[in-house]
């Protein structure tokens, strides 16, 4: 036995249906109908073979059914429907990635940077919450804290990440040239970064002028530019 006649019938119907994604559903629906009909006839005493013959005959002309079904499963409408679904999914994904900076900033702004926490509390003269965001291409740099310690070293902590998580892997060579409002230019004493999706970094500038009122970070490389002015607690406020 086996459903040889049914299979032939269904193959003929489906050969007229052009939109591929609906084919299996249609096949199943018609197949189930034929099975129900075969059951009905075998219960009436027909042999399986006779029942199948009769059930197929009851279905009608497979070509006509196929042509009519194809009209209702038109490739253009089908593809448009599929395309609209894909667009919706893309839209959702893009939105999630647009939201990434917000989520990351939220997460990181709550907790103090680990690198900052490594500075002994008693050494800190003052700490400023900066939370200034700049962007170079797809890389977002968020300057988080500035800490001035009793040895005259200014620590600038920041984190950065690629807006596209699958991003270019563009690594941040430098955060820019560090100067102050008095016109002093500083060369970095030390800096270190830790990796991950979000990289954290800290630049420590030794012998930073005590009386400087503003810290200036200026980045000008490869035609990318940003300038950040961070007000400091001026010299006289420090005991």
């Amino acid at each position: 036995m086996g459903f040889q006649r049914s299979k032939e019938f269904l193959d003929t119907v489906l050969s007229y249906v052009k939109f591929p994604f609906d084919k299996e559903d249609i096949r199943m629906e018609l197949q189930e109908h034929i099975w129900d009909r075969i059951d009905y006839y075998t219960q009436q005493g027909l042999t399986y073979y006779e029942a199948e013959e009769k059930a197929i005959k009851d279905m009608g002309d497979p070509k006509e059914i196929g042509i009519q079904l194809n009209k209702e499963h038109h490739p253009l409408i089908g593809w448009l429907y599929l395309a609209s679904k894909v667009l919706v999914i893309l839209f959702v994904i893009i939105n999630i990635f647009m939201a990434v900076p917000v989520i990351i900033d939220l997460g990181y702004s709550i907790f103090d940077d680990k690198l900052i926490r490594e500075i002994p509390k008693e050494d800190i003269v003052y700490k400023i919450d900066v939370n200034e965001r700049v962007q170079v291409d797809d890389t977002v740099i968020n300057f988080k804290n500035v800490v001035y310690d009793k040895n005259g070293t200014l620590h600038i902590s920041y984190y950065y990440y690629d807006k596209k998580l699958w991003g270019s892997g563009w690594s941040l060579g430098t955060i820019g040239i560090i100067t102050d409002d008095k016109g002093s230019k500083y060369y970095r004493g030390s800096s270190h970064t830790t990796g991950g999706i979000v990289s954290k970094g800290m630049v420590s500038v030794e012998n930073f002028r005590k009386d400087a009122k503003t810290l200036i970070i200026e980045y000008d490389r490869y035609n990318r530019y940003y300038k950040l002015e961070i007000p400091l607690k001026s010299g006289e406020n420090i005991e």
């Binding site: 119907v13 249609i26 629906e29 018609l30 109908h33 009909r37 009851d58 279905m59 009608g60 002309d61 497979p62 006509e64 059914i65 009519q68 079904l69 009209k71 209702e72 499963h73």
Partner: peptide, 10 residues
């Protein structure tokens, strides 16, 4: 013809 029901339903 039973098969012709399905194009109508669809």
């Amino acid at each position: 013809k039973e098969g012709t029901l399905y194009p109508i339903l669809h």
